[in-house]
């Protein structure tokens, strides 16, 4: 089978606006995020790092969403499982490893925050915290500012289905709806808020809440990369056209425990996890690329070897990098106070 261009009927990825190169690049990003995540679980078990919070099972939705944005202007407010997302908008594995090892060079926080608390002004990844959903009103504020400054950009914010119950979700959505702001809300509904299953979190669908705020809400299969890409792309087009926000509920499944401090088999069965592993979007997307002739077993092996090398190098770099100086704890409470703590 030849390249997609030679197939008479247009391929699915071309139909949604992805070139062959982009389609393969997306796959590489998903694998990079997956392997990075798996490495962290290993590092934690080996006692090299203290903590890891995982995004395994959600990479497909994260990467596809990122590729649908304008990665030269848009603002991102990812939540703590979004390794696939931040890698796709320009953060490197090395930078993430510096965060994992809490080293001084970590661009996210200088080794101050837990891993998964992303931030980079250069990449327009807005600094995040641990109390969930506080980033939703921030995304709305950025969209408001962009509208005031007549800048053609969107803010893109993610959160889990548990988080969607916080007041900040509702307050933020309502504000964005009232002012028809260019913001995309994407709920990564992974079926669990730590141990609490979705049926104890939600009586309805997250996507349906958009109706109450006066904008479009859609529930999609988060394991279908091209469907996620198409949905986010259309949401972005609406936002840029001044048609307001979109709420996307991407249905996924958290294949790993909540974090390295969690034993998930205390509240769910291995059978359930296995059943969902069979629906994992990553091998499905891999299969799609093979069927399109864009990926072969050889190319895949080559790709994975490259990823392993990249992660190995990043791990070593992160491990060996210097910690922040103890006294640096006092810096950056206020502007211009480097080294002096709170005094101004």
């Amino acid at each position: 089978m030849g390249k997609s261009g030679s197939i008479e009927q247009q391929s699915r990825h071309a139909a949604v606006g992805l070139t062959d190169e982009q389609a393969v690049e997306m796959y590489a990003m998903m694998q990079l995020a997956r392997k990075f995540d798996e490495r962290n679980l290993l590092l934690q078990r080996a006692g090299k790092i203290n903590f890891h919070v995982s995004g395994v099972g959600q990479e497909v939705a994260q990467v596809a969403a990122a590729f649908a944005l304008d990665r030269t202007v848009d603002y991102y407010l990812p939540y703590y499982r979004d390794y696939g997302f931040v890698l796709s908008v320009g953060m490197t594995v090395k930078e993430l490893m510096l965060s994992v090892f809490a080293k001084a060079e970590d661009p996210n926080s200088g080794g101050r925050q837990m891993p998964g608390h992303f931030g980079s002004k250069r990449l327009r990844i807005v600094t995040g915290s641990s109390p969930v959903t506080t980033q939703v009103p921030h995304a709305v504020g950025i969209a408001l500012a962009a509208k005031m400054k007549k800048q053609k950009l969107v803010s893109f914010v993610t959160f889990g289905e548990g988080s969607s119950n916080q007041g900040d979700f509702h307050e933020g959505c309502n504000f964005a709806g009232v002012h028809k702001l260019p913001v995309i809300f994407m709920c990564e509904n992974n079926q669990y808020a730590i141990s609490v299953p979705v049926h104890k979190q939600l009586a309805g669908r997250v996507a349906d809440r958009a109706l109450g705020y006066g904008f479009t809400g859609v529930q999609i299969d988060g394991n279908d990369a091209l469907e996620v890409f198409r949905t986010v792309k259309e949401a972005r087009e609406r936002a840029i056209a001044g048609e307001g926000p979109t709420l996307i509920e991407a249905m996924v499944y958290r294949l790993s425990p909540h974090s390295t401090s969690d034993n998930d088999l205390a509240y769910r069965t291995k059978e359930e996890v296995d059943e969902n592993r069979a629906k994992d979007g990553l091998p499905k997307y891999r299969q799609y690329l093979i069927e399109c002739g864009l990926l072969t077993e050889e190319k895949d092996a080559e790709l994975l070897a490259g990823i392993k090398k990249q992660i190995d190098e990043a791990t070593e770099y992160g491990d060996k990098a210097a910690f922040p100086s103890p006294e640096s704890v006092l810096a950056h409470v206020y502007a211009g106070d480097a080294g002096q703590g709170g005094d101004i």
Binding site: Y75, V126, T127, T134, V136, P137, H138, A139, V140, G141, I142, A143, L144, A145, A146, M148, K149, S155, G167, D168, E171, G172, N174, F175, V178
Partner: peptide
């Protein structure tokens, strides 16, 4: 704004991070 104080503060924070002075 809508009657929602956390949004008033949170939206202001987002706008400030973008470069506004709310």
């Amino acid at each position: 704004t809508p009657l929602a104080e956390s949004a008033i503060a949170g939206v202001a924070i987002g706008a400030a991070m973008y470069g506004m002075k709310p």
